[in-house]
Design a protein around this nucleic acid. Structure first.
Lengths: 283, 283
DNA sequence: TAAATAGTGTCTGTGAGACACTATTGG
DNA sequence: CCAATAGTGTCTCACAGACACTATTTA
């Protein structure tokens, strides 16, 4: 710590002792988490949504999340909420983007730091903790939690839960924006169903999906969405599901070969119910 | 807006009317900006740093930045600071990462949303506004502002300003971390000079440089760092500078060809002082 | 045993990497 | 006029895309 004195003749130690936060208004900051997985048969993407039991957006579905506490990083807040609400630990978690539109929450000034979590288990018993996590550190009370099918095509994105008879749908359109001298493209969404997601959560979801798709081919993200032991047909089914296109078996296997090793055992592929060689990821 | 009533019998309108922000403590939030450009001869990367005249980190160099106001997005805050401090408008500006370590500012709880700005003009007269932008919305008073040479090699990152006789240096090392099942690599820095940058700004810089390098080859970012009209030798020099490696002329031109068009005129390449065909970017 | 899926061999096109050569420019 | 740089032609190699074939498994 410097011993230099400032214009008031104070050392840093003296300055900090008397420091009072200024009069600037401060925003609340939450961490919202997009928890993404697949159905057991690797045919559908699954996303975890919670149903709000408080205003605003009462009874609408939202991403899980909660306030960041003063003694933790936003990453730790996301980890904590994920653990509380799903019991999942050691999950892949990545910061996506920070949403700061001052009008994004009608109550007050709330920024949110969005995280993407990838999980390999989307069974319902993972949802135990969600509804009892309670208000005390959530950005709103929760009355229900469920996995939704996430269906994306060229013109729309849908969130479907058949048991609850919920289908939330947005039409999406690619638009060009300018940043400095260059242009970039981004998806813009419009509600296309009676029900809508709370807040700006549809934007968070779109940003996260884009990032996931962009990185999926060039990184090892996939191994967070499948069990420790898996077959190559299943792994390929996962890639085809996330990327939204068919892959050629030979090329896929050549690409994946250096990242995996055969265990010697055999197991059933869940995507086809056929026996196949068992592999594991080599970090 | 929903007419549903919550557990207290309130509609959303009634709820919002009486809403009081909770007792959660709230962080201050700043936008810090890494302004990056090149020397006029395209031989050196330049970064804009400001010298603090307040505790903490009194008289240390830092990234320019300031508090986000309640009536603007963090992006708008970054734009506003950039305009105030450099007079630059319409500059490329991209959110990089949000830093939330509660101990990153010794005064109080301050998160910062880091932005990367790319500019094509790093002359000194761009710096007029910096020192008089004042404290009122900066995250600390500023007594000086200057362009620093940014020199990066395999083991270190240095910030050099010859006129002021300042050389700030960090040794960097690539380490592996685990996230879920997969590993990722990241640079970890250690001070290697007497002077250091304020706060965690070295981390912001490292993250931004990594993102810039990763995207530079696959996007049109480069055109934000060079004038509207340019020669291909100059554009190649820019790529070689940012990527830190030599490129083959033929391959570079093949890659860049669909993005540019010849104006028909000729101009001098600044990197070699020779005549060369003049090109412009086609968005 | 037939249909479906697992698993392998190989041809092709594209694009980056590499090098050689000619044309122009500045000192 | 010569050294340096602008600008072009073309070979190689790695890898994704594409298709054909054999082996194994389930029903």
């Amino acid at each position: 710590m410097t011993q230099k004195k400032d214009k008031n003749g104070l050392t840093e130690k003296e300055f900090l002792k008397d420091y009072k936060a200024g009069d600037y208004e401060r925003p609340s900051v939450t961490a919202d988490i997009l928890v993404l997985g697949t159905s057991a048969d690797l045919r559908t993407l699954k996303i975890l949504l919670v149903k709000r039991d408080e205003h605003p957006y009462l009874e609408q579905w939202a991403l899980p999340g909660g306030f960041v506490r003063k003694d933790e990083t936003a990453y730790q807040a996301a980890e904590r909420k994920l653990s509380q609400e799903t019991g999942l630990e050691g999950v892949y978690l990545d910061q996506i983007y920070t949403f700061t539109n001052p009008a994004r929450d009608p109550r007050t000034w709330v920024m949110t730091i969005a995280y993407l979590a990838l999980v390999s288990d989307t069974s319902d018993d993972v949802l135990h903790g969600v509804t009892c996590a309670g208000d005390y550190d959530s950005d709103g009370g929760v009355q229900d939690a469920a996995w939704f099918d996430l269906v994306i095509d060229a013109e729309s994105i849908s969130f479907i839960n058949a048991e609850r008879n919920v289908e939330i749908r947005y039409s999406i359109e690619n638009k060009r924006f300018k940043n400095g001298r260059i242009y970039y493209e981004n998806w813009v969404s419009k509600p296309a169903s009676k029900e809508e997601l709370a807040f700006d959560h549809i934007e968070i979801i779109i940003e996260s999906i884009l990032k996931l798709k962009a990185e999926f081919e060039h990184t090892d993200l996939s191994f967070n969405m499948i069990g420790e032991k898996f077959t190559l047909p299943d792994l390929q089914a996962l890639y085809e599901l996330v990327l939204g296109k068919k892959l050629y078996k030979t090329n896929f296997r050549a690409m994946i070969a250096p990242k995996v090793e055969a265990t010697g055992a055999k197991m059933k592929s869940v995507c086809s119910n056929k026996m196949s060689a068992e592999y594991r990821y080599i970090g």
